[in-house]
Every structure is written in C-alpha cells, then in structure tokens.
Amino acid sequence: MSEDSRQLLEVTDLSSSFDTEAGELVAVDDVDFKVDRGRTLGIVGESGCGKSVSALSLIRLLPQPMGKVRSGEVWFDGRDLQKVDRDEMHEIRGNDISMIFQEPMTALNPVHTIGRQLTEAIHLHQDVSPEEALEQAIEMLKRVRIPAPEIRVGEYPHQLSGGMRQRVMIAMALINRPKLLIADEPTTALDVTVQAQILALIDELQQEMGMAVILITHDLGVIAENCDDVVVMYGGRVVEWTSTRELFANPLHAYTKGLLRSIPRLDRERKTKLPTIPGNVPSLQEMPSGCRFSTRSEVEHDDESIRTRPDFKEVSPGHWVETCPYCYEG
C-alpha cells in the first residue's frame, strides 16, 4: 500500500497516432513509465521519437482532429485520465498537472499581454481580486528571473527574447502549484546560469510541496544533475528505463550507448568530426515492426528480430531494457 501512495502517475501501454494523408501513423507505441510524488523522471531520445506526443497524450492535448490516443491507461492520483470526462480533465490540467510546452510561441497567445495570460490562469483556479492576481503574476515572473517584471507584464510575447518567453511559460505552469509538472525542453533557450536558477526553482518547489516532474530534455548534463530516473525512447517506444546513476554507469541498449557517446564535451579537439549514430531515424511509415533500432545498428539484424517486437524486460532490479539480441547483450 505504501508503494501505491507514493506513486503519482502510472502510464501503461500508451499508444497514440495521427491521421495523415499517408494513413494512420503511430507516433507512440505501447509506452510504459511511472513517476512517484516528489521525484523527477527524465525522458530522452532521438528527435521525433515521440517524447512530446507522449506528454501531450497524457494530458489529452494532442492536436485535434488528427491526433488520438489509441489505447493505454494513464493513472494519475487514483484516476484514469483517459476515462475522466472533459470538464474534469480541464480541471486537472489547471490544478494538478501543468505543462511547459516545447515551443513557447505555440503556447503563448500573441495578441494578449503576458500579464493577462498569467492572471487568467490565476483566476481560473483561485478566487482573488485582479490586483492580487497581478501581484502574484509579477512575483512569479520575478521568481523565474524575468528582469523588470512590472514592465514585462504589459508586454506581448513577440517583445520578449526566446528565453524570456520560455520563462513566462514556466511561470504559467508553476503558478497554480501543480502536483505534476511536465516540462518539455524547458531550458533550451536559457543560458547555463539562468538554466541552473530555473532548475533550482523547480527543485525548490519539489521540496516545498512534493511536486513530481517529468523532464524532457536532450541535455544529458541536465538529466544527470536533476533526474532520479530516466526513460530512453527510440522510434515511439521505450528502449530503456532505470535510475539515472545506473543508466550512466551501465547503459544496456545499443541506442543508449550511442547517445551517451554523442554527448558534446569540452575536452574534445575543436572542429573534429563528432561521433554520431550513423544513419537517420526512418519515417513513421518506414518503421520496422520489430527492433526499431535495427536500421541504425552496427550489427546486422536477422529477419526475425526486424519483424517481431523484442520483449521489454527487467533484467536487473529496477533496470528495464528492450531485449533485442543484437542491441542488448544479455
């Protein structure tokens, strides 16, 4: 039972797809993960592997009408988010789960001032006067290190720098003190000093109120310093899932190993060719149904492994990996 009360989110067999001219494309294919209260789960993976779509599926914000969740359960705080009605979902999104979107400009309304967007979010969930809401908005902008917040509340998104827009979104996401924060590349537009401050602020709120965080990022340094556990995705599936320490010390899947080898380093000789994983991710139409990394792997796969999906197994306590015989040496 104590296990259960710690757990905030459990995603099982989540699959999502898009209707396109080329037919139905499955972008997320049977994904599983869990997040405990107060903990941080990192999600990493190749560009286009389904991180954002997974996140949007959880909170039922896939673009309509093309996007849909095909199957799966999303248990959050005792409720299956795929089953609750729209009003309830709307309320959960405002009160309990917040999302920081990857591209601020797609999430901010260009015709409303920053102040208006923030205070609207506050009014939706708190019964406060307009002055009080504005005060809270300014306070929050200050906490995310926006300079001169009293002036910025009167400005429009296009007047802000990329990193300021990102921080405005972070402020919007945190203002109602959610139980779960989904942060999709929250610091890509921030310099490392501001990034460190924002991550410290998120950490602070985690300590203060036990907020759980799903942190989607390409920066493996950020993962190493901020996440308890990590999910590695490739081609719409989870290929590895374990604690952060274990992942860096003992990566098991060939894709994870390739990823860790590609981390930019300060001690590399300048202007030399950087290590990469050869080839490109196939488009969703061309994805093999079996081991999806087969088209990239240095080891040639047999037909069976290209056709049949490998099992996702717990190979040592708490360390899960997709057990394709060519990508994982068991």
């Binding site: 990493v44 190749e46 560009s47 990857q102 590609s262």
Partner: peptide, 15 residues
Amino acid sequence: EPVSALDVSVQSQVL
C-alpha cells in the same frame, strides 16, 4: 540556436 532542439546524435550530425 540552430541545434538546441536536437538530440545529441542528430545535433552532432548537423554540426
């Protein structure tokens, strides 16, 4: 910020 939205492997390819 040409590569900030890319995973480290694609980033290295683009660089």
